[in-house]
Design a protein around this nucleic acid. Structure first.
Length: 700
RNA sequence: GGACUCGUAGCUCAGUUGGCUAGAGCGUUGCAUUGACAUUGCAAAGGUCACAGGUUCAAGUCCUGUCGGGUCCACCA
C-alpha cells in the first residue's frame, strides 16, 4: 500500500472499475429479493450542490442491501426542470444581451435542449465523483420519447376519466417570467405597503362612501363596492350606486358577509379579475368587467390615459389624479404580505386565464388511505403528519405553464367551435368538427406533472421486466422540502396510474446549512462546493460528514472542521490496513509461535471477537431501522477507538513477534468491519479491501 | 390564527421504546510518541441536559405551562 493516504489518487479509477465490472447493474431475473430506489433526478441545468450530495443516504441503502443479499437497483436520471431551466437559460441569454423574445419557439427549444444536454453530462460525471452506485445502463431523462409518451397517456386517462378539466380562473401569474404557477410556487413576502382611503361619490349626489384599498390602480376595473349586511354605518347605502372615480362608471353597493367591518372603513371595492376573493364574490353576485391588467403587466381596457402603463407607475398616476380630484382621503402605512414569484421575486399578478387543472381531491384521498393502511411509511412521524396535512389541504392543481421548455400539452382546440379535445398522437383532423384547422395548446406541463410519474415512467421504459420486478420501489429518499411538490404528488399520480404505491417507504433528509445555520447561497458566499471538497479531502470524507452524528431528517450544519475529522477517519482506516500489511510477518524460526502455538493473546482475541459480534448486532439493528447515522457511529467507534486504539495497541508486540494467529484474527475482524463501513465510505474501504482480497467488496 | 420542530460541554451535534458515574467530533490543557497514522496515542478540564411544575421506584427522555430560536400552512380589501 501507498505510504500516504491520498484519496484523489484512487477514487476515479476505483469508480471506473466498479462500473466496468457491472457492480451497479441490476438483474431483473434474479432470484434475490428486489430493493430499488429511483434517484430524484437532478435538474440538468447546473452543477451539483450539497443537496445532491445528500443522496449519499440512497447509496448507503443500496450498498447495504446489496451486501445483505438483495438484488438492488438505483436508477439515475435527469430532469428537464421546465420553468427552472428556462429561467436559468434566460439568465445566460441576458449575459449575451438577448432574451427569450429574440427567438421563435422551435429555436428557443433547441437552444435549451443543447444547453441541458451539455449540463447533463457534467452532472452525471459529478454523481460518479460522489461514488454513487447508480445503474448507468438504465439512465433516463424526463424528455425521453418513451417516458413522455407515458406522461401524455396519463394526462389523457386523467382527462377522459374526469380528473383533469379546463377552467378559466384567476391564476398566480408572473408578468416578468411570463407564466402562471400552482399554489406551491408562490412565496409570501412581508412588505411595508400603503393603505389608501378613497372616496367613491354616491350617484345620487348625497355624499360619498370611503373605501380602503392597497391597490388603487385596480379600481379602474371595479364592479361594486361591498359592505357587511349588518354594518349599521352602511345599512342605508345597500342597493344604492356610486360613481367610480376617474372612469365615471356607475357601480352598485352590495352587501356580503365576507366583509370584515373592522378592517379599513368596512367598505371594500370589488375587482373581479385581479383579486382571488373578489373573483369569487363577483361571480356570486353575477358582476363582471374585463381585466384592466394584461399579461404584460400593463393597464388596459380602462379607456383612460393609464392604458399601456405598467402597474407601478399607473398606481402613482392614479393616486395623483385622485388627489387632484379631492377623492383621496388618507394614506396609511400598512404592513402586508404580497405573493411573489418564487424564482424572480417580483410581485405576482392575479389574472384570469384558461388552464388545465387536476382534480386533486379524489386522488389525494386515495393517497391518504394508502398512508393510513401503512402501504407507505415515513422515516419519522413528523413527516408522516406533514404529508397527511398536505394531502388533506391540497387545492386543484394548475398544470399549465406558458413556457416552451417542457412537454407540450396534448390538447387541441377546435377553432370553429372553440372546444378542446385531448389526443396522445397528433391528430390528423379535428376530433370535434372534423374540418377546422385545430391548434395545439401552446402551454407545457408543470415539470412536477411529469416528475410525479417518474417512478413508473422510468421502470416501464428501461428494460423489459424492470417494472414487474422492481415496482413498487422500496424507498423514496429526498429532501423534506419537496414533500408537497413531489412526494405527495408521486403518491397520488402513482396510485392512480399503476394501482400500486410508487414506493413502500419515504425517507426524508434535512437541509445542509452553513456553520451559522444559514442557508447556503452564492450571494452570501457561504457555499461549500461538494466537488472542491472531494478534491481536497476525498469523497469519503464528504460523505461521512453528511452522515456522522446527524439526527433523522434533521437539518445539519456542515463546516470544514467536520469534514477534516472525517478525512482523518478515512486515513485511519487506510493506516490500519497498512499496519496489518506491514506486520504480516512469519514468526522467527525455532520459536513456539512458528509451531503455531498461540501465545498469551488468546483471551484478548476472544474478547475482540465477542466485542465485534456485539457491534455487528448493534450496527445491523440500526441499519435495518434506517438509523444510518447511528449505524455509522457504531462502526466508527469500534474500528477506531476499540479495534485500533485498544486491541491493536495491546497486541502490537505480539504481532511484531510474528504471532500468526493474532494476525489472522485481526485481519479477519478488520476486513469484515470494512464491509460494515463500506456503504458510508466506499472508496477507502474498497481500496484497502482489494489489497487484501484482490476483489471489490461488492463482488463478494 | 393553525401546526411542526428545536433549545444537552467553548463551538457543531448524537442520545433509539424513561434505567447504572450524560456521549461524540472539533477546540482547550498536560504528557507521550518521529518504523501504521502528528490526518497519532494517553489523560484532563468542561454540562444543576432553556426555565417552572407534574407523572414515576427512576426523566435529557413522558405530560402541562413559560421563555427563546427555526420551519411550514392559512388570512390579510
Amino acid at each position: 500500500m501507498e505510504k500516504t493516504f491520498q484519496p484523489a489518487q484512487f477514487e476515479d479509477a476505483l469508480y471506473k472499475e466498479w462500473e466496468e465490472k457491472g457492480l451497479f447493474t441490476a438483474d431483473n431475473t434474479s432470484k434475490k429479493k428486489p430493493f430499488s430506489i429511483i434517484l430524484p433526478p437532478p435538474n440538468a441545468n447546473a452543477d451539483l450542490h450539497l443537496g445532491h450530495a445528500m443522496y449519499v443516504y440512497e447509496d448507503i441503502m443500496i450498498r447495504y442491501h446489496k451486501l445483505m443479499g438483495y438484488e438492488t437497483l438505483w436508477l439515475p436520471g435527469a430532469d428537464h426542470a421546465g420553468f427552472e431551466t428556462q429561467f436559468v437559460f434566460e439568465k445566460h441569454l441576458a449575459k449575451q444581451k438577448k432574451s427569450r423574445f429574440d427567438y421563435d419557439r422551435k429555436t428557443l427549444y433547441k437552444m435549451i435542449w443543447d444547453f441541458v444536454h451539455e449540463n447533463r453530462d457534467k452532472m452525471e460525471n459529478q454523481l460518479r465523483k460522489l461514488g454513487f452506485s447508480l445503474d448507468w445502463s438504465r439512465r433516463k431523462f424526463t424528455l425521453d420519447e418513451d417516458t413522455v409518451a407515458i406522461v401524455l397517456n396519463t394526462f389523457k386517462k386523467l382527462h377522459d376519466e374526469g380528473y383533469v378539466y379546463r377552467a378559466n380562473r384567476l391564476v398566480n401569474y408572473c408578468t416578468h417570467c411570463g407564466t402562471s404557477f400552482s399554489d406551491l410556487e408562490v412565496s409570501d413576502k412581508e412588505v411595508e405597503g400603503k393603505l389608501y382611503y378613497i372616496d367613491f361619490p354616491l350617484t345620487d349626489g348625497k355624499g360619498s362612501l370611503t373605501i380602503a384599498t392597497t391597490r388603487p390602480e385596480t379600481l379602474l376595473g371595479d364592479v361594486a363596492v361591498m359592505v357587511h349586511p349588518a354594518d349599521p354605518r352602511y345599512k342605508d347605502h345597500i342597493g344604492k350606486t356610486v360613481t367610480l372615480p376617474i372612469v365615471g362608471r356607475t357601480i352598485p353597493i352590495i352587501a356580503d358577509e365576507y366583509v370584515d367591518p373592522e378592517f379599513g372603513t368596512g367598505a371594500v371595492k370589488v375587482t373581479p379579475n385581479h383579486d382571488f376573493n373578489d373573483f369569487a364574490i363577483a361571480k356570486k353576485h353575477n358582476l363582471n368587467h374585463p381585466p384592466v391588467i394584461g399579461f404584460d403587466g400593463r393597464m388596459k381596457n380602462t379607456g383612460t390615459e393609464f392604458d399601456g402603463k405598467k402597474v407601478g407607475p399607473a398606481r402613482e398616476g392614479i393616486v395623483e389624479r385622485l388627489k387632484t380630484d379631492g377623492l383621496l382621503k388618507e394614506i396609511k402605512d400598512h404592513h402586508m404580505v404580497v405573493k411573489t414569484c418564487y424564482k424572480c421575486g417580483r410581485t405576482l399578478e392575479p389574472l384570469p386565464l384558461e388552464q388545465w387543472y387536476v382534480k386533486v381531491r379524489p386522488l389525494a384521498d386515495r393517497a391518504l388511505a394508502s398512508i393510513e393502511k401503512g402501504d407507505v411509511t415515513f422515516n419519522t412521524p413528523a413527516f408522516k403528519n406533514r404529508a397527511v396535512e398536505w394531502l388533506t389541504n391540497f387545492h386543484d392543481w394548475n398544470i399549465s405553464r406558458q413556457i416552451v421548455w417542457g412537454i407540450q400539452i396534448p390538447a387541441y382546440r377546435c377553432i370553429s367551435k372553440n372546444e378542446w379535445f385531448v389526443s396522445v398522437e397528433p391528430p390528423s383532423k379535428c376530433a370535434i368538427c372534423s374540418e377546422c384547422t385545430f391548434e395545439q395548446d401552446t402551454d407545457t406541463f408543470d415539470t412536477w406533472f411529469s416528475s410525479a410519474q417518474w417512478p413508473f415512467t422510468t421502470l416501464k421504459t428501461t428494460q423489459p421486466g424492470d417494472f414487474d420486478f422492481f415496482y413498487s420501489t422500496s424507498v423514496m429518499e429526498t429532501g423534506y422540502d419537496i414533500l408537497p411538490w413531489w412526494v405527495c404528488r408521486m403518491l397520488m399520480i402513482g396510485l392512480y396510474a399503476t394501482d400500486a404505491v410508487p414506493f413502500k417507504s419515504v425517507y426524508l433528509h434535512g437541509l445542509v446549512r452553513d456553520i451559522k445555520g444559514q442557508k447556503m447561497s452564492k450571494s452570501k458566499g457561504n457555499v461549500i462546493n461538494p466537488l472542491e471538497t472531494i478534491e481536497k479531502y476525498g469523497c469519503d470524507a464528504l460523505r461521512a460528514s453528511l452522515v456522522f452524528e446527524v439526527g433523522d431528517g434533521a437539518d445539519q450544519r456542515l463546516y470544514d472542521d467536520k469534514i477534516r475529522a472525517m478525512r482523518n477517519f478515512a486515513n485511519k482506516i487506510w493506516n490500519i490496513g497498512r499496519f496489518l500489511e506491514m506486520n504480516k510477518t512469519p514468526p522467527p524460526p525455532g520459536t513456539p509461535l512458528e509451531r503455531g502455538e498461540s501465545g498469551t493473546s488468546e483471551a484478548m482475541l476472544k474478547a475482540l471477537k465477542k466485542e465485534y459480534e456485539d457491534v455487528k448486532i448493534e450496527y445491523h439493528k440500526n441499519m435495518k431501522a434506517s438509523k444510518f447515522s447511528a449505524g455509522f457511529g457504531v462502526a466508527y467507534e469500534f474500528l477506531w477507538h476499540r479495534f485500533a486504539d485498544f486491541y491493536i495497541e495491546a497486541l502490537k508486540q505480539d504481532l511484531k513477534d510474528g504471532n500468526i494467529s493474532t494476525y489472522q484474527a485481526l485481519e479477519e475482524v478488520y476486513l469484515d468491519s470494512l464491509r460494515l463501513l463500506h456503504p458510508f465510505v466506499p472508496f477507502v474501504t474498497d481500496a484497502v479491501y482489494k489489497q487484501f482480497c484482490g476483489k471489490c467488496i461488492l463482488e463478494t
